[in-house]
Write a protein that binds this DNA or RNA. Structure first.
Lengths: 214, 214
DNA sequence: CTAATTCTAGACACAATGTTCAGAATTATA
DNA sequence: TATAATTCTGAACATTGTGTCTAGAATTAG
C-alpha cells in the first residue's frame, strides 16, 4: 500500500522495514508502547539491533512513519471518492442514504485494523491521533458543505460549526474505537450505515435545515 | 479535592505529593510524557530524586494516582447529581432542556483543565482514557434510561444501544478535547447547552421515541 | 523538648540507548 | 557468472535514566 517510492529500493530494505513495522505493532498490542524496547523489536523481526538504526532514528520514528503512511493512504482514498449520497434500496424515504465516503473510512479501518488499534489507543505520540481527528473533521466539513450546497434554504446552525464538526469527529473516533476493541462484531458497511442513521438526520436539524416533516 | 484520607498525614507528605503532581503535569504539557524524567520532576518540584521513590513507584504511578483521584471525584459528583432535566427559561418549547449532570461534567473539566488535558491526550497509559470513556458511556446510559422510564412508548432503537452510547461518549470526548485545546473559548454551561442541542433531540429519534411534531 | 517521621545527597548495579567499525552476506547489474 | 555496491551483523563503547540503599540532616507532631 504505502512506501512505493519512485527510486528502486533494495529488496532487503523493504523486507527489513516491513519486518520492523510488523514486529513493533505486534509488540505494542502485546505489552504496550512504553514496554517495547528496540531490542525486542529486532529480536522479533529476527534482525540485528544495529540494523534498526540504519532505518529509523528510534521507536517513535518507526511508529510515526507507519502512521503517516496510513493517514496518507486514507487521505488519498478519500480524495478519490465522490461525496455524493446514494439512496438506499427499496427503503421508504426516511432520508436514509448511503454515503460511500463514510463507508470507505470504516473499510480503511477494517483493512488496517492493527495499526488503527495502536493509533486509536494513542500509543506513542498524541500527535497522530490529533492528526486523524483533524482529517475526519475536515472530511465531515466537506460532506456537510457538499450536501448543503444544493439546498436553497439558509443555514441557521444551532451551534458553531467548529463545535459540531469536532463532536461528530469524536463520535466517529469513539465508534471506531469501540468497534476495534470489541473485535469488529459488525461489517464496515453496517458500521457506516449505523453512523449515518445516528447522525445524518440530526445534522440537518443542527444546521437548521429542517423544513417540515419530523 | 482528593486524597483526604482519614489518617492524619504529615504536612510534608501532602506538600511533597502536590508538588510532584504539579511538576509532572506542567512538564508533560511542556514536552510530552515520554520526554519527562524523574529527575526533571524532582528538580521542578525542588525535591531530591530519592524523595520521589518514597512516594511513587515510577512516573506512571504518579500520573495514574492523579488520574484515579480525578475520576473518583467525577464519579462522586455525578452520583450526587440528580438526572432530571430542567426546562430552560422563557424559551419556546423546542424540547430544549438543561441537564445538570451534563453541565457538571463540563464544569469538572474546566476546574481540572490541566489534568484533563493530559488525560485526553492519552499521555501515559491508554487505560486512563478508556476508563473515562466507560464512565461517560455509563453516565449516558443512565441518562437515557432515566428519560425513557417515564415514556410509555415502546423503544425501537435504530442501532444497538452499545453503538449509540459509545458514539455519544466519543462525541463528548471529542468536544471536551477540542474545547481544552482551543483554550476553552466557551463557558462550561455553554458547552453543556451545545452538547444537548446537538444530541438530545437526535437521541429521541435514534431511540425511536419520535411521536409527532418534528 | 524530644521522639518519630520525612527528606537529602551520594553511591551503586542495571538496563536501554544510540554510535562506531570491520567484516560477512546479499543484491543489482553487466 | 562475476563483481561492485549495498545492506546486514555482532561486538564494543560511552551515555543516560532507573530504582535501591545508606547514614545523616531537617522538619514535624505531640
Amino acid at each position: 500500500m504505502p512506501s512505493n517510492q519512485n527510486e528502486k529500493i533494495d529488496r532487503r530494505v523493504n523486507r527489513t522495514r516491513r519486518s520492523l513495522q510488523g514486529a513493533l505493532l505486534a509488540l505494542i498490542l502485546e505489552k504496550g508502547y512504553d514496554a517495547v524496547t528496540v531490542e525486542d523489536i529486532t529480536r522479533r523481526a529476527d534482525l540485528g539491533r544495529t540494523t534498526f538504526y540504519l532505518h529509523y532514528r528510534d521507536k517513535e520514528d518507526l511508529l510515526m512513519q507507519a502512521v503517516q503512511d496510513l493517514i496518507d493512504d486514507l487521505v488519498n482514498e478519500l480524495a478519490q471518492t465522490p461525496l455524493d449520497a446514494w439512496k438506499l434500496n427499496g427503503q421508504e424515504d426516511r432520508g436514509e442514504v448511503f454515503v460511500p465516503a463514510i463507508a470507505l473510512a470504516f473499510h480503511h479501518v477494517a483493512i488496517h485494523a492493527d495499526l488503527y488499534r495502536v493509533l486509536l489507543r494513542g500509543e506513542g505520540t498524541y500527535s497522530a491521533l490529533r492528526r486523524l481527528r483533524k482529517i475526519l473533521s475536515g472530511a465531515i466539513s466537506s460532506l456537510i458543505q457538499h450536501f448543503t450546497a444544493y439546498s436553497r434554504v439558509e443555514l441557521k446552525p444551532q451551534v458553531p460549526m467548529e463545535v459540531f464538526v469536532n463532536s461528530l469527529a469524536g463520535a466517529w473516533i469513539g465508534l471506531m474505537t469501540w468497534w476495534l476493541e470489541e473485535g469488529m462484531p459488525y461489517s464496515s458497511e453496517e458500521m457506516a450505515v449505523m453512523y449515518q442513521r445516528m447522525f445524518m438526520r440530526s445534522t440537518r436539524e443542527v444546521l437548521g435545515l429542517i423544513n417540515g416533516e419530523g
